[in-house]
Simulated scan of single mutants.
Amino acid sequence: MRRACVRVPVAAALALPLALAPTVAQAGGKAGDGSSLGDAKGGRQGQNITVRTKVRTTVAGGSGTGRTGSLSSADGNWTPPACWYEPAFSPKEIQSTVKTWRGIGDLPLIGGIGDLVGDMLDARYKDGKPYKDYNLDKQGEGMFWAAAVNPNRKDDPEASSCDKPPFWVNNGQTPDEPLAVSPKVLAEYAYDELPIPGTEVTTAPAGETKVNLPTWVWLDKARFKKVSVTASLPGTGLSATTTAEPKSLHLDPGTPDARTTPASGDCPINADGGIGAPYEPGRANDTPPCGVTYLRSGAYPLRATVTWQITWTSTTDPGGTLPPGTFGATQNVTVQEIQSINR
């Protein structure tokens, strides 16, 4: 009987046995120091199989509230990377993977696939095309790098763009690959991990206001402060810290029949870190530093969006800026006519 030819991607062949093996990290889990771990689930992105990322993140600062969201880039042409390449396999792990594949060749419904896959992997990693004997003579001198997916963007079509099979990189060297993990890539990944507080503003009058009556809007300075996330890759010395700082609040009253203060709808950050000013009794007819005046009665979706300035630093890179991020929320406002009685 002639054996059928089965084609299996190299990355898939390497990842499947490892995906079946126990892992130290589990998706969404915590490291021993309390820091969060990256995606720990090897999975299929389109037709590509990816390894579990080893990137860790830790948070400094924060909103003090569990209500958080992710930033949207203010630059429509930029998003954090959906995938990258990072150190993944030692020579012994590549050798062990081949052995695992050959060991499953006699399982029901598998038939000779295990040996076929083993032959394919050996052709690349053992027989000198391009590696010989799994690079066992270089054990401890480097790693095979493989594709890892940003767990926040696993459904992004770009997550399948890292489609190279694992390749060798000596310790201390940077591969000639634009998507190779670097301090900047880690900084951009940390962008996705920033815990941004919810943007529900405080208003006065609260929830219900009157036509032509200024509605005061403000945000608590205690909740809106700098927050930083450090992303690091253990064993490489690579890390980067990304910091978000609130810069302004934009108000969209939800109707053209309204005036915002300032007229642009952009309320800047105060010197004390707050936005706008809390309403005080007796100031109902004053112009608020941040607010909206509705000109017609009705129910309107008031949307408040905070713009955050993003910077990053690293001990091994000069650092710099990333595109500003925005995060907003919508709340309903009811506007009533002021009733008067003529005698």
Rank of each mutant, 00 (worst) to 15 (best):
E208M: 01
S72I: 05
K132I: 03
D33F: 01
A25S: 10
P281Q: 13
A82T: 03
R153S: 05
C83H: 05
A222N: 13
A277V: 07
G254Y: 07
S340V: 14
A12N: 10
K210I: 00
I338L: 12
T68S: 10
V335C: 08
K30H: 11
P324Q: 06
K225T: 02
T215C: 10
R153E: 07
E177I: 03
D156M: 03
G62W: 00
P234V: 05
A25Y: 12
W218H: 15
T334I: 10
P281K: 11
Y294K: 09
D286Q: 12
N332T: 15
L249Q: 03
I341W: 13
A148M: 02
G111E: 08
T305K: 08
G61R: 02
R2H: 12
G111S: 01
K99H: 02
V201Y: 05
V55L: 04
N150T: 01
Q331S: 11
W312M: 03
V335L: 04
I341G: 02
T334M: 02
A263F: 03
Q173V: 11
S239I: 01
V201S: 03
R102Y: 04
T209W: 02
D115F: 10
R102I: 10
I338D: 13
T97S: 13
G325Q: 06
G320M: 08
A240D: 04
V169S: 09
D286E: 14
G237A: 07
P288Y: 08
T313P: 06
T316Q: 13
Y125T: 07
Q309C: 00
R52W: 00
L16M: 14
P17D: 01
T50Y: 10
Q26S: 13
L20G: 15
T242W: 01
N342E: 13
R102Q: 14
A88Q: 05
S228A: 15
G237F: 03
L194I: 12
G265Y: 06
K92D: 13
A74H: 00
G69F: 05
P166C: 04
